[in-house]
Structure formats: C-alpha cells, structure tokens
Nucleic acid binder design. Sequence first.
DNA 1: CTCTAAACAGAAAAGATTTTCATTAACGGG
DNA 2: CCCGTTAATGAAAATCTTTTCTGTTTAGAG
Lengths: 146, 146
Amino acid sequence: MEYYLNIIKQNNLKLTLRRIAVIKLLLNEHRLFTVAEVRHRLKNDFSRVGLPTVYRILQQFREIGLVQTALSANDHLRYFICTSRKHDHHHFICSQCDRVYCLDYCQQNQIEKYIETELHARADYHYLQIVGLCEHCRLPKAQDSD
Amino acid sequence: MEYYLNIIKQNNLKLTLRRIAVIKLLLNEHRLFTVAEVRHRLKNDFSRVGLPTVYRILQQFREIGLVQTALSANDHLRYFICTSRKHDHHHFICSQCDRVYCLDYCQQNQIEKYIETELHARADYHYLQIVGLCEHCRLPKAQDSD
DNA sequence: CTCTAAACAGAAAAGATTTTCATTAACGGG
DNA sequence: CCCGTTAATGAAAATCTTTTCTGTTTAGAG
Ligand SMILES: [Mn+2]
Ligand SMILES: [Mn+2]
Ligand SMILES: [Zn+2]
Ligand SMILES: [Zn+2]
C-alpha cells in the first residue's frame, strides 16, 4: 500500500481520498474493473464521486504505470493493479471471475531474435495476455456449493 | 479477396458495397485503422457513409473473425485484417508506420504447461502483440530522403 | 496552525460511440 | 428481370467518455 502511494507522490500527483480509495479497491480484489464498477464502489465511501474523476484517476494511474488495462471479450477496456515489482512479466486472466494473476513468464529475448530473423525488424516490447479458468473457477467446489 | 467475401456470406451478412470497400481498404494496406480513418477513406467512394455504419461493419467483422483489433499506445482501439490462414499466430506492429505483420509464432503449448504448473489453472487462449520498428522504418532510406 | 501555490473535483458542455427506427438495398425464387 | 423477404443504412436520439472551467482540497513553508 505504502509502495503505491509513494508512486503517486513521485509522479507529482496528490494523495487525495479518492485516489487512495481506488488503490485500496484494486489491491483488495485482484481483478478487472470497469470504470463504472470502480465508481459504484467509491459511492460507498463518498457522498459524491464525479464520473470524470474516476476516468481521470484510472487514466493517470495507467500513465504512471500504477495500473494496467486489458480488453474484455467484447473489447471493453478494464483496469487492474499489478502486484508484482518485476518489470517484465505478464498476466493470466480468469474469464469467469475476472481475477488477475501475475506471471513470471516473459520471452522478450526469444521474441527479439525471432523478429530480427524473420522480419529484419526490431522488437521493442510485447504485450501478452493469457485467458482461461483459474484454480477456483476450474472445478465446482464440494464444500461451498450454491 | 474472394476468400474474405465468402466469409461474409457464410456468416449470413450481405455483400454490400460499403462492406466490400472496407475489406478492400484493409487488404490494400496492411495496417491499423481507426474508425474515423476508415470512414474518411470510404467517403472517396460514397457520397454518404454514416458513422454508425462504419462502427457496425468493423465490429461485425471482428465478431466473425474477419478483422482483429489492437490497442494503440494511448489505448485507442484500431482495426486490421489478418492475411494469414493459419489459426494460431500473432502479429508484429510497427510503432512508426502502423503496418501489421503476421507471425508464425505461437507458444500455446508451452503456455498451457506453464499455467497448469504455476497456477493450477487452464489456459484457453492467449493474445500476443509485439511492437517495434519494421524493416522499412528501422533505417532511414538512402534514396528516398525527405 | 495558517497561508499560499498548485493540483483536484464536480458540473456542464463537448465529443465519441451505440441504439432506435423508418427507409433503402441485397438476395433468392419465380 | 420482378417481386417479396430480410437485412443494412443513415438520421436522430441515447449513452458513454473526455474536456473545460471554477470552486475546493492538498501539500508544504513559515
Ligand atoms: Mn503483474
Ligand atoms: Mn495474421
Ligand atoms: Zn476464476
Ligand atoms: Zn514501419
């Protein structure tokens, strides 16, 4: 938590109550959120939360690398916070519960070579998103049936 | 060209002049297009092209797998057509000229094993986008200097 | 704690995307 | 071809997202 608040300060953004609430929400639940969902949750804590504020906060956080985005199946943008400190890694997203899992998996070197050989081009970075069913959603639970 | 028009028919969509024009445009230039760019180009051929029509055509094409989408650096959705018939492959996108190159590169098997081992989860599919400078844009051309 | 400068927040407006609906175009069977 | 069926189209409206602008909050100095 401290870590994330410091990033906000380091980027000359102020530690406002709304920003802190957004960080808390995304950290508590490691999953994808739409702008509307974030706003809906903030309404529990604040009497007023303007929609432009929520859009702005999420966009600013993305610009400073504090949160990341992923497209849902219907091409709608959603936000999540990455809890790993490693630079090069990617994410697994559960298509059922929208949870996000950081992965220690990155093939940048191999990709650079491939692109150089095949296209005579330079691979600067890549974006990898893996979608599937997480451990929780994969099998119906015996104890916790609905 | 025939190939793409057949896909349209096979999905119970009609071969309208606007749809054909969109396919032609995306095939002629292998690059990312925004909705506004596509519309601007169509205006050369048609006296009227409603913006909802362009949005609809591109979305429908995406739904039937005829075109694909990619996010630009500022998270704006853009469309391109994939000219390879192979099922599992990904794309290299030039950050300077927006050209798209199909790649014969896919690590689905390796990824499935990794996700099973690390997360006890099931990887159904993944999305990989590689960004860099293509052969044309990598080096300033000697002959064609500006 | 008080004060000031800088940045933030929400309301309203602008801009972008999607939906609705009446008209027009595509397609298949005479 | 001509017609009937079905789907596509654009205008207008609705919805979603971003910008503008002014009052409010934060942060840091004193
Ligand atoms: Mn991560
Ligand atoms: Mn391709
Ligand atoms: Zn899950
Ligand atoms: Zn290029």
